[in-house]
Design a protein around this nucleic acid. Sequence first.
DNA 1: CTGAAAGCGCTTACAG
DNA 2: CTGAAAGCGCTTACAG
Lengths: 332, 332
Amino acid sequence: MKNVVSLKSLAKELNISVSTVSKSLNDSEEISEQTKERVKNLAKLRGYSPNPIAVRLQKQKTMQIGVILPNIENPFFASVLKGIDELVSSSKYNIITFFSNESLEKEKECLDFFSKGNVDGILICIAEETNKKKTFDHIIDIKQKGIPLALFDRIPMQPLGFDAVQVNDYESIVSAYKYLESNKCQNIAFVSSIPTLIVGRSREEGYLSQTNNPTVIAFEDLEELKITLENTIKQGEIDGFIAADINATLLCNAVLQKQGFTPGKEVSLIGYVNAVQNDLSYPKISYIDQHPQEIGKQTAKILLLRLESKLEDIPVSDIVLNTTITIGDTSR
Amino acid sequence: MKNVVSLKSLAKELNISVSTVSKSLNDSEEISEQTKERVKNLAKLRGYSPNPIAVRLQKQKTMQIGVILPNIENPFFASVLKGIDELVSSSKYNIITFFSNESLEKEKECLDFFSKGNVDGILICIAEETNKKKTFDHIIDIKQKGIPLALFDRIPMQPLGFDAVQVNDYESIVSAYKYLESNKCQNIAFVSSIPTLIVGRSREEGYLSQTNNPTVIAFEDLEELKITLENTIKQGEIDGFIAADINATLLCNAVLQKQGFTPGKEVSLIGYVNAVQNDLSYPKISYIDQHPQEIGKQTAKILLLRLESKLEDIPVSDIVLNTTITIGDTSR
DNA sequence: CTGAAAGCGCTTACAG
DNA sequence: CTGAAAGCGCTTACAG
């Protein structure tokens, strides 16, 4: 199945010992230049490459990083993964990706698999269910096993003692609110399909901090959300919408248009979108850019750092990245 | 770093040999029920789990499948990956995912890494550059190394002798054309941002087969595509658009709307979209559903099958899946 | 400068 | 039914 050329076969062909071959290939000081040359030449000629599994067993390192994503079909996570990949693929590690599909049970299974000696480090965004039930024991357990782990995006309120990378959700919404306000919006509503998610709550709090007369339209069920949205919009009192997630954003934009409103004229909308596709669409929705690739890169960076450093005592980092607002057609 | 409990430690504690412990845990017939019990109990008590790296070295199998995707930010590939994951995660393999970012060079590197004993099988959709340059030697090489490989989505014209899963692109467009035609479209144009991609060509041919008076608007550069599209639409002669890919679809829809057309009224549009997001948008674009998850599942299924079967002689399969047309608001 | 030996943690013929 | 030995393909003290 694999290469038949091994250290042993090279050694036999050169009539020297396996140890000498190994050391030569690893450029050991102990070996004469001449021997190294001979060995390296033959190795190249025979197309030798070390059996990675054997190396891992010997070195007691898997050279793999486990990644757990809630849902790959969410473009936010796809972009985060791209960011992770960019950093990791330029290191000597590679990535095993699992999807929890927002399920706590599945998340546990993944973590369990990882912790059984399958990876050297873990990158995880917790599942919605985990977030809701606030069950974090399976994550905390990982610390006991001495496997470095870094969290991103959905970071539990109570600190778990892991490296974490998130975005300033609260402030992002405050900025969005202020932007709308400074552009003649008098009555701004908040729309969300993620009312229980950590990030959703922070965003809602950001909104609530800005108004004494809040209108919050929040349902996990998209059908319910849609109906409530339709009724609210029909009333015609709201002239500004801040949407907390991509689904709420698309839905809000759709209902507005369907009712004959032109987002950007009588009414404004700022939300969260998939930047690539939004760019090609009309109207371009004004949106909060979380720079998901950057989130991925930063998280991977921390983990790689921790994997390199022997010292356990580098302090736990809690990185908060800034978002930016990109103004499109749906606000002015 | 990992579990300190090993076969050796269990053996010592039980005062029996490592081989007996190993066999007990693997439910060998050779061992007495009583000993098995003792061993299993202690193993559970101590939380033993076999070192996967050691098992792999012994078994000469990595238990990993390498996946190469052109671009994870394309929702089509994200869904394919989800399909792959669904099948593979229920097997005893797991997935290492690499992204070629549409680059031939990067694709070669990934394949090279995989072929050096890092995976047991490979799933790949070739990069755009690979497709363009028609350079397939690096893929054919994999066959020599005896590593099963399956292609999906972008399948080279000349058969390479690998399992392949694709979609009936030609016929899909023919159906779309016929649908528009039967709904009073007189002058149907074809819009594409993937003129050189295999799938793009098949789709174009499908279109060309249906008309003597074709209007093909095809540019890889989205800006160019947009400008040409604007001019064509301004002329007002086209009353039906078939778009060959997600970018062309979104762009076409956007330009139509921006020029005051209502897709679904004076003019129709059928294209390719991200189903999840399209569902929440307005207008819902009528689209050809490729069932990307199914593509992923089928491809993974074939590979797993080939990995299980010892016999090299199961015939190469070339699976062509059917698409379906989902009618939304932009056609009737 | 080179090589024999032990070991990483397992499995599996083979003996007893 | 149990265990000693060899081996998967490497690396690395340790001797010479």
